[in-house]
């Protein structure tokens, strides 16, 4: 079963038949969906389903995808246009921060890359240090931080220029409950402030709590799309939690990348 979104809403980002192959293996297969302005969109799927590949296409990391994308009604080719990438804040799965710099130096560096200067840069850095809860330790080298602190910094490094669309690739993986909760609260705060989020994770309860709509990917395709309640109804069990929906749609067998 492949789900294609009805493209009539006010979408910030629209994907039309987007596909991507690694040599002979098709990782993303004819994906069409729209991300509404200001919504938190959950992207779920087992390992190897194509979530990270799809996020990478949107972030401009992969360029040889087929299909089309539109951002705010305009053609969107982030791999080729820096101005398209400016619309996006990307938080990768791995800790993409520099351990031999302090938190402040990391944020100043990434802030300059997105074109912030002077007072605007300093304010953004201060705000994001505060958001990450790292103001007191802003001068310490990142390598001295705990895993949770590094994750928080990894998140806020992608928020410096207040991007219209935030791509979050498993931002809470491997952190303690306190840091996870802190990150989660940050994201909720951002959503409430009107930012659009695309969020991938394996933590179903996070998606259930945060996301307005959810897409479930399986073998490179969107197999279900809608709010949690809609997905539960679609499998014939309105009381089902997201994990049950997920296992119902993607099966119980083990997945290898």
């Amino acid at each position: 079963m492949t789900v294609h979104e009805d493209m009539t809403d006010d979408y910030l980002l629209e994907l039309e038949n987007v596909s991507y192959s690694y040599r002979t293996r098709r990782a993303v297969n004819e994906v069409s969906l729209g991300i509404r302005r200001g919504e938190a969109f959950g992207l779920l799927g087992p390992n190897g389903a194509g979530k990270t590949t799809l996020i990478s296409c949107i972030a401009g990391l992969l360029q040889n995808w087929s299909g089309s994308m539109e951002f705010d009604g305009q053609p969107f080719t982030p791999a080729h246009k820096a101005s398209d990438r400016y619309q996006i804040g990307f938080v990768p799965q791995e800790l993409a921060i520099y351990p031999n710099l302090s938190a402040e130096e990391n944020l100043l560096f990434f802030g300059r890359l997105v074109g912030l200067r002077g007072e605007k840069l300093r304010k953004s850095v201060a705000d994001n240090l505060d958001l990450a809860g790292l103001t007191e330790r802003r001068h310490d080298l990142v390598r001295t931080y705990s895993g949770g602190m590094q994750r928080r910094l990894n998140l806020t490094s992608g928020l410096l220029h207040s991007p219209s669309l935030l791509l979050l690739d498993e931002p809470t993986v491997g952190v303690d409950p306190q840091s996870r909760n802190h990150i989660f609260e940050c994201l909720r705060h951002m959503r409430d402030a009107g930012h659009t989020l695309i969020y991938t994770t394996h933590y179903m309860e996070e998606v259930q709590r945060l996301c307005d709509r959810i897409a479930i990917m399986h073998q490179g395709q969107i197999v279900a799309l809608g709010a949690h309640s809609e997905l539960a109804i679609s499998i014939g069990n309105p009381q089902a939690n997201l994990e049950e929906v997920f296992l119902h749609l993607t099966g119980r067998s083990l997945r290898d990348e």
């Binding site: 982030p78 400016y86 990307f90 990768p92 993409a96 990434f110 890359l113 074109g115």
Partner: peptide
């Protein structure tokens, strides 16, 4: 190898 290149490539720079 550390993954920071992916973030750099997603920035609005060449």
């Amino acid at each position: 190898e550390s993954g920071t290149l992916r973030r750099l490539f997603s920035q609005p720079i060449s």
